[in-house]
Write a protein that binds this DNA or RNA. Structure first.
Lengths: 219, 219
DNA sequence: AGATAGAATGACCACTTGGTCATAACTGCC
DNA sequence: GGCAGTTATGACCAAGTGGTCATTCTATCT
């Protein structure tokens, strides 16, 4: 369906797809559960059931393998953002935000490991490549939100006076926290967000949207 | 002024204060710049100018040393929260929030390394002890915000219908992101928050408070 | 069956890790 | 000075790291 370009050395790209998949999936598992630094090529190799020599013939270095995994995660996220944007073009700003949140939860349900890698990178900055790449990923997410805000302003749904860029950053921060807490145990202890069921997520979505829409002040 | 209890073994507690300070400061430096896992006792020992044997006589394990550093950071944060609460008791909710944010920036200016350790722990969960300790630190911060919200509700400043706990979580998320981005380069690329000057912080404070107070909807 | 090219292997390398412990150095007391 | 008790030291340990490469295996073609 989505022909992602195959990463790695020519040798790896010529491998039969099942073996490619097995190796790549083992890498995703390893990086998702331990992060870049603590991920171990030895344990990866053990899990994938191949020899260390082979792995290093498929990817020249740990760094390259991680970059390939991140590329894939980022591409998936981008596709999901694009889909939300296109499918909600006719809706109001707050309806679009709601869609975005629910699609985010669904994305985590469908790709829990990729989501973990993606958000972990965004939050920790722990990566072999420079932080420029990370900043770029952030801009991608916030730029998407900024587009939503601007087009809502044009339609008169949001106040014209808003500081679009800063507001997008703050919105992004709210959504990111929510999504991270959905799969991270200690982020929202006792608040029913971690692995929450549909009802619980519903309340979170409503509460968050209400804050963003109306603020807290009594009037 | 604040007599924090001295951590470590009896031997360490009997050391002359300058040496205590030298060792502890080296630990703070190391954990702040590398996080728990990647912090190296070898490099710490080098920086402190003592032998490895001595360090392990002062603290039995890396884990103990880290716990001592975290205890100190958490105690400082707690004191700073208490101070804000007491000194702003007469102000309105939004004035108090503003104080809280500005005091947060000042805290980072005064204790950049401790702040880094504290927030890194809260965000990454990377610690030798269980996540219960981390959850407890989170509850401390969010509980503080929840108190502010509730007392403002009693005074009629905020809507009664608010979901206090969830709102506190969201507010905490906003403030935490802002403070983290103040000392982290890649979190808000190109938005003038990282190491921002007084004017820039001013805009951020105003924009954030405006969102929290009024929301985004045109009315 | 034999030759050849391509792929798989794991012993091996230099290096780092947290932690130990026999020994050495220093201290105050008689 | 000689002794005793305390503190400092760094060589050493087992385990782990990312990465290499000479060797072996395997599949294909003649």
């Amino acid at each position: 369906m989505h022909d992602d370009p195959i990463p790695g050395t020519e040798l790896f790209r010529n491998l039969n797809p099942e073996k490619q998949e097995k190796v790549f999936q083992a890498a995703v598992d390893e990086f998702a559960s331990k992060g870049y630094r603590s991920a171990s090529m030895n344990s990866l190799v053990r899990a994938a059931g191949i020899s260390k020599g082979s792995l290093f013939q498929y990817f020249h270095a740990k760094e390259d393998l991680f970059a390939a995994v991140v590329d894939m995660a980022a591409a998936r996220v981008k596709r999901y953002l694009k889909r939300v944007r296109d499918e909600t073009a006719e809706l109001t700003f707050f309806e679009r935000l709601e869609w975005l949140m629910r699609a985010g939860f669904a994305f985590i349900d469908n790709h829990p490991l990729l989501a973990k890698i993606y958000f972990h990178l965004l939050q920790s900055g722990e990566a072999p490549f420079g932080s420029e790449r990370i900043a770029e990923l952030r801009r991608q997410g916030e730029g998407f939100l900024a587009d939503l805000v601007r087009s809502a302003q044009r339609r008169g749904e949001l106040r014209e006076s808003l500081d679009t860029e800063r507001i997008s950053f703050l919105l992004n921060s709210l959504l990111e926290t929510l999504l991270r807490a959905y799969y991270t145990e200690f982020l929202a202890p006792g608040l029913g967000l971690y692995r929450g069921d549909a009802d619980s997520l519903d309340r979170w979505v409503r509460t968050t949207l209400d804050l963003i829409r109306n603020g807290l002040e009594e009037r």
